[in-house]
């Protein structure tokens, strides 16, 4: 397994958000983390990334426990994080945004370059010198993924990549994720949009009240009406 969460707990103030999340991501797969709003999807992502310090449990990545490490150490270990709110640097140009994410190549991975990012997200190539703040939501979403890829991660964490995007853009995002998967990247994404998850994910894990309640193949979840109704309320 590339990533293993074992009994991870996390708190926001007094609120106990993650109550023992156990989850594994195999190399090369796309795993969708599903669940209602407030179930703990974003917090799981942030706990893996060190943006929320886990109050208990292990976050093993390639065998090393990363729980309690600083975000920059975790990023350097090979985990790339794409936040839900995109958080691009609005004052910096597209090229500068990408350069902030740049890290040395990683053994066994074809290194990412500006040119390779533009290949996956062609619209970005035409706006290299544009300030990040002057881009549309869809373009910003491409930039934030590209910026993270520049760090040559082995595992990509995508927090709600389809949130707030027009359906046509969401379709393009799905194509991009499938392409990244073909290139050998492992992806853990959180989603509310089941239609989107169905297109891109191999497996699904369903969070509820800070614990994983259902785990299995994406197809199995789509076939299991009872599970979907119980955990996802659809």
């Amino acid at each position: 397994m590339l990533l293993d969460l074992r009994e991870v707990h996390a708190h926001y103030g007094r609120a106990h958000i993650l109550q023992g999340v156990t989850l594994s991501v195999a190399p090369g797969e796309v795993l969708a983390l599903l669940g209602r709003n407030g179930a703990g999807k974003s917090t799981t992502m942030k706990a893996i990334m060190g943006l929320v310090r886990p109050s208990g449990g292990e976050v093993r990545f390639e065998g090393t426990d990363l729980a309690g490490r600083e975000p920059h150490e975790i990023a350097r270990a090979g985990i790339g994080y794409v936040p839900e709110e995109r958080r691009i640097f609005t004052e910096l140009t597209v090229a500068e945004n990408l350069s902030v994410g740049r890290r040395p190549p990683r053994a066994g991975l074809e290194p990412w370059s500006e040119a390779r990012i533009f290949e996956i997200f062609p619209p970005l190539a035409a706006m290299r010198a544009r300030a990040g703040g002057r881009m549309s939501g869809g373009e910003q979403q491409m930039l934030t993924i590209g910026r993270t890829l520049m760090g040559n991660p082995r595992l990509l964490l995508l927090d709600e990549p389809s949130e707030g995007l027009a359906p046509v853009i969401v379709e393009r995002m799905a194509d991009a994720i499938l392409r990244l998967k073909r290139e050998g990247l492992t992806v853990l994404l959180s989603e509310q949009n089941l239609h989107f998850a169905r297109i891109v994910a191999d497996r699904a894990a369903v969070l509820e009240k800070g614990r994983i309640r259902w785990e299995g193949a994406m197809d199995a979840l789509m076939a299991d009406d009872a599970a979907r109704a119980e955990f996802l309320a659809v």
């Binding site: 990334m49 943006l51 920059h72 958080r87 640097f89 609005t90 902030v100 994410g101 760090g151």
Partner: peptide
């Protein structure tokens, strides 16, 4: 300079800069 770019990025969003592998301390 790269240092300057990182500083300007951190001015906007320190946490994100950290999550991109930069030692913001």
């Amino acid at each position: 300079t790269r240092w300057g770019t990182l500083v300007r990025a951190a001015t906007a969003d320190r946490e994100m800069v950290g999550a991109l592998g930069v030692n913001q301390r």
